[in-house]
Design a protein around this nucleic acid. Structure first.
Lengths: 191, 191
DNA sequence: AAAACTACTTGCCATATGACAAGTTATACA
DNA sequence: TGTATAACTTGTCATATGGCAAGTAGTTTT
């Protein structure tokens, strides 16, 4: 079995090879069909996933009932709804596969035991969460300080796979604009 | 000593009274003068604070060199830069007092020991961080789905103390608009 | 008391983006 | 293969917000 994905995603100086193996053993490989929901709003998450291959999105409904895509997840990233999983409360987000995918699934109870037993996993987990918080704050700042065109260009540069594979309307709501505007931005850039 | 503030902020079913006392003993009460920096960008945070009384802000510099206020902190809230403290890396944010304040300071090393020793504190910490991530994501969504006027009204409703005490320019950049626009929004609302 | 400075307001005009509706193209389904 | 549906584009017009500059009021400094 190729364990590169685990070595890369769970990388931390305090996690030993033996502890990494405990983590790896806790994951089960699963296949997901395009369109499948990994978590629906109102349900409490009981697991998270490490994506081997595929594309997913998170989305919420705004007050008008429209879908807003809040995040995309792809190869070698964690597909997770942190609030629901760690506060044991119903999710307000949906997690959905946009392509047929392969992922490694780990149950909350299993992770929980390792988290409390192994210092390195606690440190890794806290650092990972800190990083997510940093990324989320940076996203807020970008939303209010850069133009829609610049946000599109930044996404194109950082995660081109999303631009290539996700439908325009999902990308548009992720960027905080209408699909009409995104279509015009594309036209202006590439024509 | 009135320990209400600790009972409220460190509330968690897995934290016993004795463990709470260990936490309380780790905090030292300090006074902060208006304008004082609790953390400067480029420095690594070595402590966090529980605010007893006062108002603080977090701010970053955007690519044009302008200050953007990213958060406000007030009574019974934690004043903390998570990324710097838990990843042990230089901060990109500044933390500054907007009023003379009183707070409870706790050193990273001291918290670290309690975190790894006491399960309840780990659970509390992870839940707190999950909540922060949730709040941050909600902020991103609000930034792109609601008008500046509605964001102002929401802040007025949820944290009126900030509207009352912080200078207009800080509130404006926190809301993602210019101080000119905020001035006009106020005029339209209250005149 | 004068001067400098900060905080906030107002006017004028520019522009990015939205709203709505219609058109085109591609995809899926029967 | 044809039809329905989804994905995307385009046109016209409206509006929220920004940019810049000037003005007023309050506060601090000397």
């Amino acid at each position: 079995m190729d364990i590169t994905i685990f070595e890369n995603t769970y990388r931390h100086p305090l996690i030993s090879q033996k502890e990494l193996e405990l983590l790896i053993d806790a994951h089960k490989r699963i296949h997901i069909k395009e369109g499948e929901f990994m978590l629906k709003e109102g349900k409490t998450a009981n697991e998270y996933y490490l994506i081997e291959r595929g594309l997913f999105r998170a989305f919420v409904h705004n007050t008008s009932g429209n879908e807003i895509t809040t995040d995309f997840f792809t190869d070698n990233e964690f597909l997770i709804e942190v609030s629901s999983l760690f506060q044991r409360i119903p999710s307000q987000e949906n997690l959905q596969a946009l392509t047929d995918s392969w992922a490694w699934k780990i149950e909350f109870d299993v992770f929980q035991e390792l988290f409390h037993k192994i210092e390195g996993i606690r440190e890794w987990g806290r650092a990972w969460m800190s990083e997510q918080l940093f990324i989320s704050k940076r996203r807020s700042i970008n939303m209010i300080t850069t133009s829609a065109k610049d946000r599109y260009l930044a996404l194109l540069k950082e995660k081109p796979i999303i631009i290539q594979q996700a439908p325009l309307k999902y990308i548009a709501s992720y960027l905080g604009i209408t699909d009409t505007s995104l279509s015009r931005i594309r036209k202006e850039l590439f024509q």
